[in-house]
Nucleic acid binder design. Structure first.
Lengths: 136, 136
DNA sequence: ACGGCGATCTGGACTTTGTCTAATATCCGG
DNA sequence: CCGGATATTAGACAAAGTCCAGATCGCCGT
């Protein structure tokens, strides 16, 4: 299955999101690349030709995608948030010097021995980030 | 062992940090509380009476502490970095609504099945963050 | 006590990421 | 084609953090 602009409309609709031009462009930017992008990067991609989509819309749209479960937020860098089109359970590998972020399949990773949650709380997610650095 | 200002000087020296007034105050703020503080919070604490320590110094000092391994950086909130005086291996529990951040002892937590690192890379740290939310 | 010097600190300008708002544009059902 | 709801926009704004040139500190040798 390829991520064409046409498929994006269906994807958005299936997540209860009204597919507008801008939203399709932004979804396409994320899903056709299957990469972790920051809001800045999304904006740059979407506006390569002429400026077409405003900053506010990019931020609004990414937040909407997040709420609707279309993308996931990855917080590894203090200076910017990344958006991840892969919402299946997985972890992340972060190369500190280059800023490169990649997925770690959760399939074979086991986490055990976590203490019980505080009462009245539910888990929203478990983020496992392996921070690596080029050997000296 | 209590974290008095006097003890701070020794602590700093043992980490190869020249103990100045400002550095002692900042270390004291972190270690006497044993809590996760943001740069803002540190600044507020240190400057309760009169303004004594500049923003630049707070940031410089926290970065210095980080480099020297005196504190650890916790990146859970996209809008600010927390500094953690507890450098022993442990994980974090983050209450999304309240912003409260607490420690999870690493002793009983087991993580297995992580894939091998890319060649030429060394692990700088593994961050495990359990994000929780008040039950609806 | 004094001068000097490297290390440290400072205010303030600046950058970057992200939010907000009020006005405008678009879409859709009738 | 009209009206209302929904979406988009430019630009002002806010907050966290960086940067720099000048002031200050603490300490050493004399």
């Amino acid at each position: 299955m390829h991520y064409t602009r046409d498929n994006m409309a269906g994807l958005l609709r299936s997540h209860d999101i009204n597919p507008t031009h801008q939203r399709i462009e932004i979804a396409h930017a994320l899903f056709s690349r299957q990469e972790h992008l920051s809001a800045d990067q999304v904006m740059a991609i979407v506006n390569t030709r002429h400026s077409e989509t405003s900053k506010a819309t990019v931020y609004n749209t990414l937040k909407l995608f997040l709420e609707k479960g279309l993308v996931r937020e990855v917080i590894v860098d203090p200076s910017k948030v990344f958006f991840d089109p892969n919402t299946s359970p997985h972890h992340h590998l972060y190369e500190v010097d280059s800023g490169k972020l990649s997925d770690i399949d959760a399939e074979h990773v086991q986490i055990s021995g976590l203490p019980p949650l505080p009462p009245g709380m539910v888990t929203e997610g478990i983020d496992l980030i392996v921070r690596v650095r080029r050997k000296a």
